[in-house]
Design a protein around this nucleic acid. Structure first.
Lengths: 354, 354
DNA sequence: GGGGCGAGTGTAAGCGCTTGCACGGCCATC
DNA sequence: GATGGCCGTGCAAGCGCTTACACTCGCCCC
């Protein structure tokens, strides 16, 4: 397109038509065209029709950047998620977007790949594009980012986690308490030697909270929290399988493996199958998130049902309220329920105590 | 944060800092600040440092819209996928984005929810935001959209399908031929009574091509293509399960169910389990896409491995070449390979012929 | 019959940025 | 010791749009 620029430009009639082109063709001023497009009720019907005809004839599409600059509004909201490849985010974000759209906002999504530096860059990029509000995942991040947003007066909501107070209001569930409940169930089944497969906890407060939840349940049951055998590994079925294999090769393998998410758990189940280890006969496995996978896998996965869609909708409502000038709302706590399925059962009778 | 708006405005110094604020603080002109930011090598090092300091102190972030308007470039590419909730798109798009980023482009993603009208609106929205190129899925769409893009001189690439010639170059695989190969394998196993579970074929050339591929394989094997029992159903595990139940309740149930994608196939497997139908003993099931699910499910799913990431990278390369002024490239054909796993086996010995 | 008013439209001032052009100073060259 | 060239910088003209403000009608009311 740039080889010489002249022939091409002719092909497409000197670039995209502008408001002025429309105005000229309709025989009115640019102000009138602008009004016909944005506040049609303030333009006389015959004028409106002339403008509409010109718009159609020219294939006119308003330039978003110019509009944003002149109107000083973008009706755009940004969201930064760790990755689109994780189904749990895809679902929540979809609901978030639908709710925003109903309110007249457009969503821009970026992914941070779990890298804090990338996340910071994405925050700036979204702000540069005029985001009037931001959805973020989790609380772990450089306070400078929060300060930056506050200085700009850009509201933000954190989700996929819940914290009564924090620099940013949250809409989500209590990862620690929920996982404690899950681990409590496992212990109640009679398990004493627990292990966990967790996502890397470094810059991930959700993963950290979940591991803490397990330890809390152990402490509450009189077990030594320090005895929890934790393997951290990146997200993925293969990595989950490898982690499970590692845990089961310990001198005293666990009777229950609590996984930080369903994908890791699915990997554990696959590894168990490959290793000829019976689940839940010999070892129980639990997940977290309740993605579709959980019900399809054999044995079906005991997991925590996270209300992704509800979370997305609630986050959208909170953010829109803030943008429209409401006071900073309190954090909203949703409940995530345990779904008991076949992968959790009492430990084998011959299992030695923890 | 907006309860009254006045005190706040003071807090944030009347809105976001602009280039001019930076220039004033650094004691240089706005032109110099702009150059320091965009072409640092053309600015004397001491000046550059003053500018950088001012930028940091002010927390300056350039206004993307203003920049785009002045520079007449956005370095932005748009993609419209049916939905983010489908893992296959998530993965391909991720690779697409990574490749674009390496070339200095930013990706904007929109989803059409399989609705042509929404897709058209998204095309306009992305063009409005300055997309310099577009990635689209499949060839099915109103020709007016293609004409619109051609008139604007905006290059587009279609993916997830392959067609030697078309209004838009494509980067993908041949859905029809690939599915024909898959169905050929099924028939070679001895199956005669085939059924299919397909995504709605209305505005989806990929789904349509896959069903045609099955029929072509039947015809090639001397079977009556019209005898193929097809159930169309929206994407989802539950819907796949329901479709499978429906197929198996026919007077003469099939011995093989060929599914248009892995998610529908996973639903079929779940339904089979629930109904006490042995797979592959009584009926075989195949999928398409080879998402993670396929290897985790029991029995493991025979499916078609689609090179999502490779496709994303190739599409990015083609699009960038077109944007940079290259000629419209020929369509690129990738190969999708069949992965034979446990869900496909010969039909039961007592199965009556088709 | 004149004044007031509201509806419909036009004029023009920016919004924040990039970039062609001009300019001043410095060094190398003849 | 001029002359030319280059480097670093500033000036100012837009990019395409929205929106206060001003203006013109035509109508209603007194």
């Amino acid at each position: 397109m740039e080889e010489d620029g002249k022939g091409q430009a002719a092909d497409r009639g000197e670039g995209a038509p502008t408001l002025e082109d429309v105005a000229r063709r309709a025989g009115v001023s640019t102000a009138t065209v602008s009004r016909a497009l944005n506040t049609p009720e303030r333009v006389a019907p015959p004028t409106r029709e002339k403008v509409d005809a010109a718009v159609r004839a020219l294939g006119y599409v308003p330039n978003f950047g110019a509009r944003a600059m002149a109107a000083r509004r973008t009706n755009t909201i940004g969201a930064i998620i760790p990755t689109m490849e994780n189904a749990i985010f895809a679902r929540g974000i979809q609901a978030f977007q639908e709710a925003l759209q109903a309110e007249g906002y457009t969503l821009l999504v970026a992914s941070s790949l779990y890298d804090p530096a990338v996340e910071e860059a994405e925050v700036r990029a979204l702000v540069a594009r005029g985001a009037e509000g931001l959805l973020l995942i989790g609380h772990d991040r450089d306070p400078a980012i929060t300060r930056f947003l506050a200085a700009r007066g850009i509201p933000a909501v954190v989700t996929w986690t819940w914290q009564a107070d924090g620099p940013v209001p949250s809409v989500g569930f209590d990862n620690r308490a929920t996982m404690q409940e899950m681990a409590g169930q496992v212990i109640a089944m009679g398990h004493r030697r627990l292990a966990a497969i967790s996502a890397p906890t470094a810059a991930n407060d959700r993963a950290r909270a979940r591991v803490e939840g397990i330890r809390a349940a152990m402490a509450a049951a009189g077990l030594d929290p320090a005895a929890l055998d934790v393997v951290e590994t990146p997200y993925g079925i293969d990595t989950g399988a490898a982690a499970f294999a590692r845990l089961m090769s310990r001198q005293h393998p666990p009777t229950a493996v609590i996984c930080g998410n369903d994908v890791l758990a699915a990997g554990a189940l696959r590894a168990a199958h490959e290793m000829g280890i019976d689940v839940p006969g010999r070892v129980s496995v639990t997940g977290f998130d309740d993605i579709d996978l959980a019900e399809v896998v054999r044995p079906a996965l005991t997991t925590v049902h996270v209300p992704h869609r509800k979370m997305g909708r609630a986050a959208a409502a909170a953010l829109v309220a803030m943008i429209r000038g409401g006071p900073t709302p309190a954090s909203t706590r949703l409940v995530a329920e345990i779904r008991l399925r076949a992968s959790l059962a009492p430990p084998p009778a011959d299992a030695p105590p923890g």
